[in-house]
Amino acid sequence: MTKPKVATTSLAGCFGCHMSLLDIDDRILKLVELVDFDKSPVDDIKTFTGRCAVGLVEGGCANEENVHVLQDFRNHCDILISMGDCATMGGIPAMRNTIPLQECLDVAYKTGVTVYNPDNVVPNDPDIPLLLDRVYPCHEVVKIDYHLPGCPPSADTLWEALVALLTDKPMELPYELIKYD
């Protein structure tokens, strides 16, 4: 029997949730027995090789590339999980949501006190993904099946959730494993 496949990605996140995933310590050996990793920074596979049972998405959507990757995950994964506060509510990147985008760019590239930018231009290369008007949590872009808040979600939270899904058990996380910080 082939093992189910898991894909992971970090959109507008800091990779802290992926670090938390690695923080399951030696249980990672058991995880490798349970699953194969498909597209993921863990094995550096860049494109999906097939259908995946579970997709773990860290980070919200701050630019158009985030949206494309998230839609790609939705198309390839049976179960899609928002992992961490950025994916579930926007997180730190969403702090720009109360400030107009142009103002953010001006401070970042022109008027900020530590900015050195003699040409005084905001980067506008076609290869750079366009920023969205604001940062969106994943469930405001595609259908998300499970949400694991936390900054990051603890290794135990991620482990319990993954094992429950992969062994067809209901995901009933105890009080201590659902935290927003």
Binding site: S82, T88, M89, G90, A94, N97, T98, R134, P137, H139, E140, Y146, H147, L148, P149, I178
Partner: peptide, 13 residues
């Protein structure tokens, strides 16, 4: 046991 609010965020100033 709320993992995420079901309503859209308003991001008020």
């Amino acid at each position: 046991g709320i993992a995420v609010p079901k309503f859209p965020y308003l991001w008020p100033e």
